[in-house]
Computed example of a mutant assay.
Amino acid sequence: MIEQGVKGRGGLQPLAVPTGVPALALLPLLEQSLRGDRPVMPHAASGPVPPVPVHDPASLPDALAVVVGTSGSTGTPKRAMLTAPALRASARATHDTLGGPGQWLLAIPAHHIAGLQVLLRSLDAGTSPLAMDLTDGFRPQSFVTAAEGFTPGARRYTSLVPTQVVRLLDHPGGADALRTFDAVLVGGAAMPPRLRARAERARVHLVATYGMSETAGGCVYDGVALPRTEVELDEEGRILLGGPTIAHGYLGLPDLTRATFGTDEDGIRWFRTDDVGHVDDRGRLHVDGRLDDLINTGGLKVAPRLVEEAILEHVPGIRDVVVVGAPDREWGEAVCALFVLEPGALHDVTADDLRAYLRDLVPDHALPRRARRVTDLPTRGPGKPDRRAVAALFTMG
């Protein structure tokens, strides 16, 4: 395993990260970063080189390894500063939770934290990662082919977004390939209960992850915090995350860093997320959505994710859905549902249909007032729904 080397101060360089197999060529450079020797700022090789935010080099944390962009939908673009110890702590907590170090298959962009962690966990564990061909985007058959290349006897892991899991389960041989994995981490967007149930019937081991760039990726698995990770809720239900995987702030944004990150009297670093959630009677965390995604309709708050889960579980024919608020003269905001039908669905679904199916399952004020069908949902980042784009569809009519 790679251990901490010298302190990383200054010399931060943008790192162009290609997709798919070519990303594996970056492993020697990332190995230096994971030692704290060479801090890098990953970005998509297909896009322009981003400028390094203006910052005081003396403010960089010791052993800085990577400065990774967040995929938040609002506000100023931010880049979280992650140290080598934070990344190693995340990698080891993940392997301890999943049953031990193993070999990973890269199937998502490696400039985002989830894909980057596939490579960094491999480096920390001393294993050789695989990568699927993403030349033409995510093709299930390419995933199936890549999954045949694992070292015999190695534990097998990968990270996917929900839409990739759906496409694999729809593909001949996809479920067989997924069954060969000891764990399939699923993040980037909420995992619909229907998808988990379908995977369980196919005997595929999915693990729903919750985390972000600021926490070195997933730090809560299936509602349970990873070892040494702390989870708290404040008085409004905002999720607070603490532990050794927390970033040391945002590069070049000292005021926002002070407002968002902190260290308690025990020396534990904390991150104040923009998410709200609740803990069930089993002690498992449920993320209800982002604070700025909450819909205020008639003076009452609606968490979109709860409505989305109810639709996917109880409304037949709907494959995927995003619920947002759109301006409404009477209610302030109206609950709106943009959805994709299952292949071969015989009938469209109206707002009245949604209300009929969901009545008594969600509060009356959470029942959708508008609905619209599309062939694909707008997305951003690693498979996350683009709620701004969805809201714009309803705002424009």
Rank of each mutant, 00 (worst) to 15 (best):
V340D: 02
G99M: 03
Q13S: 12
R373C: 12
E200P: 02
V161R: 00
A183I: 15
S33G: 10
E333V: 12
G75N: 08
C219F: 07
L24F: 12
L87E: 03
L361E: 15
E232S: 11
L24Q: 04
Q103C: 07
K78C: 03
L300G: 06
I318K: 00
M41T: 06
V52T: 09
R228C: 09
P129L: 10
G75L: 03
L169Q: 05
F339R: 10
L285A: 04
T83V: 03
G20W: 05
E342C: 10
F181V: 12
G149F: 12
N296G: 08
D275F: 08
V161I: 15
P227M: 06
L294V: 14
H314R: 05
G187M: 12
L306P: 03
R305V: 13
R373S: 11
T145W: 09
A114H: 15
H365R: 07
G317S: 05
F143C: 08
D386N: 14
V204L: 01
E265Y: 09
T151G: 00
A147F: 10
H248A: 07
R369V: 14
R38D: 13
V52I: 15
T135S: 10
L393S: 01
V207H: 04
G173I: 02
G137S: 14
P109F: 13
H112R: 06
L294A: 03
P152S: 04
W331P: 00
P193D: 15
A202P: 01
T94H: 13
P39F: 12
L256K: 08
P193T: 11
F150I: 11
L312K: 01
I108A: 09
R355A: 12
D364K: 02
I295K: 00
K78A: 08
T180A: 04
V17P: 05
G173D: 04
T245A: 10
T209C: 10
G267R: 13
R179K: 04
L106R: 07
R258A: 13
P48K: 01
V287E: 11
R9C: 06
V220S: 11
V390M: 04
T94N: 04
L34A: 07
L361W: 08
V186R: 01
T70L: 05
T395L: 12
D56K: 14
A202E: 12
R88Y: 07
A208N: 07
Q117Y: 10
P254R: 11
A177Q: 07
P172L: 12
G283P: 08
G72L: 03
G153A: 00
G174D: 10
L312Y: 08
G262E: 07
S159V: 15
Q141H: 14
P109I: 09
L64Q: 09
L253G: 02
G11L: 09
D353M: 10
L241W: 06
G344L: 10
V49F: 00
I295S: 00
A216D: 09
A225W: 13
A16R: 07
W331H: 15
R9K: 13
E308S: 10
G75P: 12
I246K: 01
L106P: 05
A389N: 09
L98Y: 11
P57A: 09
A208W: 01
P85E: 03
V166I: 11
G153T: 02
R198Y: 06
T375F: 04
K7F: 14
